[in-house]
Design a protein around this nucleic acid. Sequence first.
RNA 1: GGACUUGUAGCUCAGUUGGUUAGAGCGUUUCAUUCACAUUGAAAAGGUCAGAGGUUCAAGUCCUCUUAAGUCCACCA
Length: 740
Amino acid sequence: MTDTQDKSTESTIYQLWEKQGLFKTDPDSTKPSYSLLMPPPNLTGELHLGHAMQHAIMDAIARFKRMQGFDVLLLPGVDHAGIQFEGTFNKLLAKEDLSKQKLGREEWLKRAEVFREENYQSFHKTWTVFGLSADWSKEVYTLEPKVQKAVFAEFETFWEQDLLYKGAYIVQWCPKCGTAIEDLEMEYQERKEKLYFVKYRVIAKDVDRHASARDDDDDQEYITVATARPETIYADTGIAIYPKHPKFSKLVGKTAINPLTGNLIPIFEDPRVDKEFGTGALKITPGHDLLDYEIGKEHSLPILHVIDKKGRMTNLAPLLEGLKIDEAREKTVQLLETKTAIAESKEFAHSVPVCERCKTTVEPLISEEWFIKMEPLAKKALKHIGQIKFYPGNYNKILSDWLENIHDWCISRSLWWGIRIPVWYCQKCNPNHLVGKDKDMVVSKEEPGKTCQSCSEKHWVQDEQIFDAWFSSGMWPLATLGWPENTPELQRYYPWDFELTSPEIKFLWIARMIMLSLWFEDKIPFKNMFFHGMLRDLQGRKFSKSLGNGINPGELRDQWGTDSTRMALYSYSVPGRDAKASRQTMDERCKNFRNFGTKLKNIYRFTMELKPEVLGMPTSAPQSDVIARSQLAEKQSHADDKLILNQLNNVVLGVTKNLEDFNLHLALDEIYEFIWHQLADVYIEKSKARRAQAQPCLEQVLEICLKLLHPFMPFTTEELWQKIPHTEKSIMLAKWPIAR
RNA sequence: GGACUUGUAGCUCAGUUGGUUAGAGCGUUUCAUUCACAUUGAAAAGGUCAGAGGUUCAAGUCCUCUUAAGUCCACCA
């Protein structure tokens, strides 16, 4: 059979399943429910090998549970992926010489929607092509009204519970993305940079600055600080030394002169200054450093800004205004040198935070943002996290440790692609968009119909910012089921039985889902949480576009077929284990399972197409349940039959157990070994001598094998199922075999 | 600095609660072939299970230490 025929067979089979509604839930039945929540892929780029593995695992479990007699909900969805989508899309726009600014919010959103739709179509195709048996009628998208409604309820509840606050705080800012980001969205790059030792002149606190400004005085005192960022000196508002500094402690209470601005800045002690680093004195720049911000706050230092949100110098540095940071740094050093303020400089290595998405250096700066107080949520999560079964188990500890150490969550982003913050301000009475319970603002999804309480007029403007995408995807377990309404789906399918994801987003997503779900619905979001390993290249690096080391799952499928590709992926699906893969190792495994598929087809051919003519086609229904099988075993007295049925019985036991425990790789090993080496190599070979007698047993074993394999190889097993005597229209409707 | 994970055949990886001669796939070598299947079959070579110590009748598996690699968290003036 040629590849094209294979593919058209697969697509015919997929359509057959869909047409018969086999992916749909059966909520009115008396069956127990089993729910699986697909991690929604980001709507950027194409699906990669990791996605293919996730989908393959989810689908196998869904199919297994259906055959076991559960009413299965496998709910698919996609994520709008705020910052990532916006970055990707803006890059595309730049190629057409367009930008957000040029287009304006409305037109930009229109075009973004078109781009979204294109990505979505490509996603959907890949999904169906891999045989995913999801209930497409229940598909959810994180920007659709259903989710928006849940997110609004989420925000409103937090507001009412006094867990929300908005204000100017120091945040990690990505100048390129133009938004605040979280610690979790940053990574670090090792860089060799220069560490400058800068001298600040010290004067007595009460001495008139003018009087002390004579620089020809030899008795001048200096305090030297080490900095890698001399350009921020403009915004220095203090100098801190560690307590009881042998050299500098006598300067405490005195005043230093900022060498660039001439501002007078206090010198004081603070225990957070590292004794070992530099001179033991730290320049304090509350506007551009997290620690400095904290120290500055305690010592009531003013906050100055010398770097703006575009990563350029402000007019606080008049000579450098508008310059980028690297240029400004160079110029600042020159300026300081002319003032002989640099005592020395040396190379040193440190890691610099960059934006995980665009690799731009992150600038800590002050910005108006929204935050949630997370402590009560984390505490509640910690109380109940033990009810979730993690695969592998140590993720309970990893997540708990993080929850123990929770920080407030900055949920606002200065982007356009996402759910806009549902807060309206009276333009007239509240032009600065301040937030307070009784101020001139309203929490509302739509433009408020009522008038402002202060001015009795209607001049509402909505908050410009949107929510962090994790603020909505954190609600995924609830929003997908129609929360905040108490829907029948919510009652039936929540908590989810199974969830899986990559360990990369354990805090960003999984921890958030646990906290939010417990907070709003008082129940854990999922009973089983499966973390698959990361697929990496042979050098152990992540797959990435920039490295060009990615493996396209579609190409594997085109070459080896869907079932073979799925099987290859299962062999890498051990929970929590990273694995190294290349196109070659994937090809090797795919080839192996393609051969296995061929073996299976040949077993079918031998059994059904080349059966001895003396045997008529069986008229009775296939016997696959436990009673029929044991009857058969008794009736057939031949030792070979007994042996193979016993072996098969053990395989049924093992495969079932391993699937229950989500050990897909072990389940596969077992069934592979049985079919190839026990059934084909031994039993079938021996049966040739007594073919007619062995026929019923052969048919029986084949049928059970198809069922056992169906979760893993849905297409091949369906194709063969249709060719053997069967009562159920599809193997998807067949009952999972039960061991004696 | 803190936590976690890994080190098993040439390569990529399995090995559930400790139980005979340590497994798979690919690769390598030899032989077979009118057979359901060359997308095959039979066989072979290849491992001090990172190292050391301990517990045990018994350790790849449990404990301690050493070592190497990786991941995550915190910090990086």
